[in-house]
Simulated scan of single mutants.
Amino acid sequence: MSKFKFYTSFVLVFFLMNCGTNPFTGKSTLALVPNSQILPMSFEQYNKVLEEAKVVNGTDDAIMIKRVGQKIANASERYLQENGYPNYTDNYKWEFNLIEDDQVNAWAMPGGKIAFYTGILPIAENETGVAAIMGHEVAHALANHGQQRMSAAQIQQTVGAVGTIALGNEDQQTQELFATAYGIGSQIGVMLPFSRKHETEADRIGIKLMAIAGYDPDEASELWKRMKANSGGNSPPQFLSTHPSTDERIKNLNEWAPEAKKIAKKYGVTNFE
């Protein structure tokens, strides 16, 4: 076995021993950095963003963001309770804020910190559209995608460092070629697909949560049709993107909507807003 294979095998075995569980899929997830460290940092960073941004308070839109966010969070708590994870969000501190900014964006931070920009509201178009976005962002927080991205970045950096050490006796040109090839290969072949997987996972979890919260899951695909129209169809090739293609998202959400309705029915939800 080469030194590189030996070192990387050792490192990967160590990393695989540090895993969590996604309560929505039952699959193991990378958890090298514990939430006990991540959440305080997340809360601090979120507060810093709010201090530096123009937070909208008291308007109909701001009130709607908080209302929808809380309904989605409550839906997630019901789901977790019913599926054997009653204490999963004990350390979460749900917070939903609207920020005045023209960006067409919304984002989530670990521990339930969600932000919407006013620029996305015209595309959301209505409260159900907001719920589709909110479900996606809440799903990111619940699936610990931030923790997984931090863990994956650690693996990427560590394996790269191990490769450099293993090639320590090689000439400088060989080492530089390895660094370049590894950087490009790990980004396109590992990190970007990893991010796309998270986005798809958040779409699938989010459409269930919005349905359990009483919002029509059929609206999720309509939202992404409006997103596509707003962007003019311009996006990088999927293999160079952190997100799935818009067409793929629309197709997936259309296919998942009936499933989401069936799940919502188990929670007594048969009529949607």
Rank of each mutant, 00 (worst) to 15 (best):
K3N: 05
F4D: 00
V11R: 02
F15W: 08
M17T: 14
G20W: 08
N22P: 09
T25S: 14
L30M: 11
S36Q: 07
Q37G: 09
Q37A: 11
I38H: 05
P40V: 06
Q45I: 06
Y46M: 08
K48C: 14
K48Q: 15
L50F: 15
G58S: 03
I63D: 15
I63R: 07
I72N: 08
A73I: 10
E77A: 14
Y85K: 01
N87R: 05
D90R: 05
E100K: 06
E100N: 11
Q103W: 01
Q103T: 09
V104R: 02
G111C: 07
K113M: 13
K113G: 06
T118Q: 05
I123V: 15
I123Q: 11
A131R: 11
M134N: 08
M134L: 09
H136E: 13
N144D: 05
H145R: 07
Q147F: 01
M150H: 06
S151I: 14
T158K: 12
A161T: 07
V162P: 00
G168F: 12
N169Y: 10
E170Q: 02
D171K: 12
Q172A: 05
E176P: 04
A179V: 04
I184V: 13
G189F: 01
R196P: 08
K197A: 14
K197N: 12
A202L: 04
K208M: 10
A213V: 00
A213P: 00
A213S: 02
A213H: 00
L223K: 03
K228C: 08
Q238H: 07
H243S: 00
R249E: 11
W256P: 01
A257W: 06
K265G: 02
V269E: 10
V269S: 07
T270Y: 08
T270K: 13
